[in-house]
Structures are given as C-alpha cells and as structure tokens.
C-alpha cells in the first residue's frame, strides 16, 4: 500500500510542465481523453482557484492539460529576487505549480455538479434530427432516447463564451459534420458534430447537426460566473415538449 506521500510523488512524476510563450505555463497530465486524467486537471484547477500561484491572471482547464496565464511584469515587480533565482517567470511559476501539485497529491476532487439541460428535440428547433436518424439507421425517437440517456462530462469551456466540450456521446448517433456549414446556428442549439455533442451559447456559424434547442442561456455576461456550465460538470439532457420550451422562453427560467 502506498503512503499518501508516495502516491503524491507518483502522481507528480508523470506530469509535465512546459511554457506557452513568455506569459503562460501548461501543466500536462496526459495526451488522451480519459475521465481519470480529466479529474486530475479539475483537481488542480480547484486548488488554483483557492490558492492561485503568484502573478496568475487566468487558469484554463482542458481535456488533459491545464494552462496558467501569468503576468511576468507583475511577477518581477512583486517577487523579483525569487523569480530571478528560478531563472525567470516560467521557472518560478513552474516551481509554485509543482509545489501545489505535490502538496495536493490525490486530494479529493469536489463532487461534480450534475446539471440538467432541458431540450426540445426535432421539428423546427432541431432541423437535422432526421438526418442524424437516417445516418444512424434509427428512428428520430431512438436518437432522442439515446442522446437524452447519455451521461456527459464537460471537459472544457472554449470556442465561444460558455461553449461546453462534452464527452460521452454514444457512438451510435455520431454523425459527420455538414459539408457546408450554416452561417448561423441559433443560440441554444443542441448539436452533434462527429463524435461530439455540444450546445451553442451564441449564434455562431458552424457545421454541426442541430437536433434540438434548449431555452437555458449558457452565456450569462451579467453574472459573476458568466458560464452556465463549468469544466468538470456532469450534464444530462432532458427532453421537453415545445409547449414547455415556450414557457421557459417566456421567462420561467
């Protein structure tokens, strides 16, 4: 049985730190989409939220890496001697990150939030549902049932404000992107692109297949946390009727 310390050291040993230019450091936990790797990413993101490393301006968790953006000018102004001793800003930030990773080890990640997203599937809100069904050799009802039965993980928020990169789409309903992208996919659209599914927070051009729409606003610029979803969340899609969708739209959210 490994001691807690040994386990922390082992977990730190396979982590790589590398610079992203002169103002960011990438912590690399692996190279694959893997729920266990991602939990370590989220674990470090949570620790950084509570104890940020000096000079940190942003922290961006991704599939298998976490990036800390920092301000080298502020670092030199406030921690000049230590930064110079570490060979520069990246050396100093790396050292701080390594200490945080060592100290944290396998510290428990907070229980993931489970977020319910109501979706009105098909018809004019999901114009490509038929194509996805045809491609998958399923009925529209079966596609809806499979999509809504999935247990999805938000691996990363990126591409657009509040846009979730979701893992967990059933391969049975994976459908290639359209050859010619639409000029505007309406905000709230729930779509499938290859083996991924996602929800569009803003009207955006795109080639994903639109299977439904949610009345939930994913991007909320007026709120302190402007994204409805966060990396690490678990997402469940819940089918709703058009009537229920319209009620949400009228302000029931």
């Amino acid at each position: 049985m490994m001691t807690e310390r040994e386990s922390a050291e082992r977990s730190a040993a396979d982590i790589r730190l590398e610079p992203l230019g002169d103002s960011a450091a990438v912590v690399r936990f692996g190279e694959t989409i893997d729920p266990l790797v991602h939990r370590r990413v989220i674990g470090l993101a949570e620790r950084l939220a509570h104890s940020p490393v000096p000079g940190m301006t942003d922290v961006v968790p991704a599939f298998a890496s976490l990036t800390v953006h920092y301000d080298p000018i502020a670092l030199h102004a406030r921690h000049g001697t230590a930064v110079r001793e570490a060979g520069g800003s990246f050396g100093y930030v790396s050292r701080c990150l390594a200490e945080l990773i060592q100290a944290g080890g396998h510290a428990a990640v907070a229980q993931a939030r489970i977020v319910d997203i109501p979706v009105c599937y098909g018809a004019e809100l999901g114009p490509d549902l038929g194509e996805v069904a045809a491609h998958s050799a399923l009925t529209e009802e079966e596609v809806i049932a499979i999509h809504a039965a999935g247990d999805y993980t938000v691996y990363m928020i990126g591409f657009a404000p509040g846009f979730p990169y979701l893992g967990g789409l059933s391969p049975r309903i994976a459908t290639p992107r359209q050859a010619t992208p639409r000029l505007a996919i309406p905000a709230g659209s729930v779509a499938i692109g290859g083996g991924q599914t996602g929800v569009y927070p803003l009207a955006t051009p795109g080639g994903w297949r639109i299977i439904g729409r949610t009345p939930i606003r994913l991007f909320r610029p007026e709120e302190p946390i402007p994204s409805f979803l966060r990396a690490g969340d678990r997402v469940r899609f819940r089918p709703i009727t058009r009537k229920e969708y319209d009620r949400y739209e009228e302000g029931a959210t």
């Binding site: 993101a45 301006t57 942003d58 922290v59 961006v60 968790p61 953006h69 928020i157 990126g158 591409f159 657009a160 404000p161 509040g162 846009f163 927070p201 991007f219 610029p221 946390i225 402007p226 994204s227 966060r230 990396a231």
Partner: peptide, 11 residues
Amino acid sequence: RPGLQRFGVTP
C-alpha cells in the same frame, strides 16, 4: 477582461 478564460470569455 482577464480571469474569465476558463469560461470561454476572451480577455
């Protein structure tokens, strides 16, 4: 607006 990149918001 730094600090919001984890939510997909560009600085």
